[in-house]
Design a protein around this nucleic acid. Structure first.
Lengths: 216, 216, 216, 216
DNA sequence: GATGAATGAGAGTTCATTCAT
DNA sequence: GATGAATGAACTCTCATTCAT
């Protein structure tokens, strides 16, 4: 009904304002989700007039989507997995786990945005958004994994998809369910030393389980 | 306990009404979370008056907590893991994975409530709630796991906590991140046949990785 | 997107509330149009909570439409033109003018709602709304007019449509443009005596102009 | 008058900018009225900065008034009625109707501005504005009408004011209520051929009704 | 106990107008 | 003089909760 054009600021002051809004919005959306976040709150925290949000982002939904995309992009800005070579195949599982843990550690909003998105039915990203992420971050790993299977490093009967899913799961879950798991298992998962220990043991299990030469 | 016999039917009707509200509320809260759920919607779907909700449950928050507790209880009502004996230790990993998958399959709201709760900071359950869950469902497994380590079935350097966390992670993640994973990896995770395949491969990896005799 | 069910009140108190809102809204919409009317204002003047308006009427637009329909209906509630018989044909023009003037006099919001609607592109009423008005109020007059033409009372070359349009125009315009005309012609059109005089002269002209026997 | 020659081009550009704003504003105000018009929209369509509007016109209200005055002036720029002579008296009614129809046809915003103004209580024009319009456009016609009455062309008992009001009414109404009338009478009043037909019949009635020799 | 009516405090969004560069 | 950035007040609409019958 209404044609909202998202403005790209042309002055430096405005650039800063936009970024300030964005940072605050990212925190707010990560913390409370699309439904729970409050425009008033974002405006107040960013110390700007509400109207600016609409001028810059169009609507709450559009701003949320912008934040979501940026959050994924920021998480993906970690280049480590894109520079792996065939030589890294033997230690690939460890590198991936370590990188995933690092991504979560440096982007505490990442798992939250993923969680909101999944709870919400994942309607914010378009097919081509996913296609581009897949192309940049999944495909290279898939190629190396295939190579590893051929070379006898990875078990041939385990699909690449299952493999990465399990690595994603382990690292994501550690953060996403930290609270309930800490309480259920009486642990202090928020402690970095605990995390390192868990990481080492995860690796031990997964590395052992993935080795082609050690199958039953 | 009851004073007159004629009160009984009234109590029963009241009970049924309460349960109807409860069922609807559970669906609503699972679908939209505490913030997103609407009292109006629950009342309409349960075909009762809003005011009744307050009479029965006090407030939205209290009703949410009730739903949450019941959801955990329902998920925990699966008794399979509580009846395991020493004889099951060799197949324990497979049994746990299978049970967890089954719990998620039969309680589609379970992962959602967990997710809302974690996103919300997990303030709904008290320490003793957790203690009781831990006592009933975790302790027995922990005992068997220890036995397995002693018997050389499980690797001694892998903690029980890490072990169950990984099993929780794999099964939870499959459901909680089904949407984004399906898109990222171009899969159809909602298909039961895919799920079975993934389960088998998860088991292959984890079973292989947990076996004490196969450590590096 | 949203399913708004217009509630029809079931209690007497609520019936009165709804009517109070409606009366105030009718005044407000007539005075300021759909765009200019303010929900806050209506609520305040009706001494009710804003939310009641949405509960009863769904939205501003729907309430406007309700008011519009009621306004037309009220104007049309004048039954005089529906009870005319063949015997009235010779004085029909005078009766119509008089009735139209009376309708405007008794429904000061009528020309205003018509004016808003025309300025707005007339999107509030559906085809079948018009069809029903046409059936009830225009058709009977049309039949008499045809009879009058056959009997030589009305000029055969003047269409019924043109005839009524001119009668509508004269009476509507007197009210709708009273302000600007008063200023342009330096008159006091709001005075009832002036109106009566104008009515008499309008009739003189139109009656003379419509007489079949006096054509050039 | 001007101090330096080099200022001229600047003034001209400024003048052109002002005129561009003005044209856009006229369309916007005619279409949506004072309340409905949007400064943002006007600025965007005129491709200038909002602030310029305030620099040139002071405020929305003042700009509206300017537009209104210009709209009346433009409609009045039709000189045909000012050049009538005594010789035209016999055909005066037809000439006036024709001219009024033409004015509306060439100034589609005219009836709209009149309508907004009347709905708004007509507070935009001052007494002397009306006096000047009356002097230029009404007085000459009034004089001819008086002459026509003396000469037996117009009926003595019909005031000039009533006479012009009816002509105004017929032509104005045709445009102002075109939408609702088209729907009510199931006509296509927007078609030029229909308009011509209606004009002819209006003239037949009014001319017949005004003729002094044919009174009852 | 059960129903419909009412409320108050917000929520997202818009807009005329002014500021700063 | 011209542009983009910012503001404050309002506007429509919503929702958890309470009142009254």
């Amino acid at each position: 009904m209404r044609k909202t054009v998202t403005i790209e600021p042309k002055q430096k002051r405005s650039q800063r304002t936009r970024e300030r809004i964005f940072r605050v919005a990212a925190r707010e959306f990560a913390a409370k989700g699309l439904a729970g976040a409050r425009i008033d709150e974002i405006a107040a925290r960013a110390r700007i007039n509400k109207e600016r949000i609409y001028a810059y982002f169009g609507s709450k939904e559009e701003m949320y989507r912008d934040v979501l995309v940026a959050c994924y992009a920021k998480a993906a800005s970690n280049q480590r997995l894109q520079t792996l070579t065939s030589a890294d195949i033997p230690h690939m599982t460890g590198i991936i786990i370590d990188t995933f843990f690092e991504i979560h550690r440096r982007n505490p909003e990442f798992w939250r945005m993923l969680a909101w998105e999944n709870l919400d039915g994942g309607k914010s990203l378009r097919a081509r958004d996913w296609e581009s992420i897949r192309g940049a971050y999944i495909r290279p790993l898939e190629a190396l994994y295939g190579e590893g299977q051929t070379n006898g490093v990875f078990r041939p009967e385990v699909d690449f998809n299952t493999y990465v899913m399990l690595l994603f799961a382990a690292t994501y879950f550690y953060y996403s369910n930290r609270i309930t798991m800490s309480r259920l298992l009486n642990l202090k998962l928020q402690r970095e030393e605990v995390r390192r220990q868990v990481e080492a043991q995860f690796l031990a299990i997964l590395d052992g389980g993935m080795a082609a030469s050690r199958q039953r």
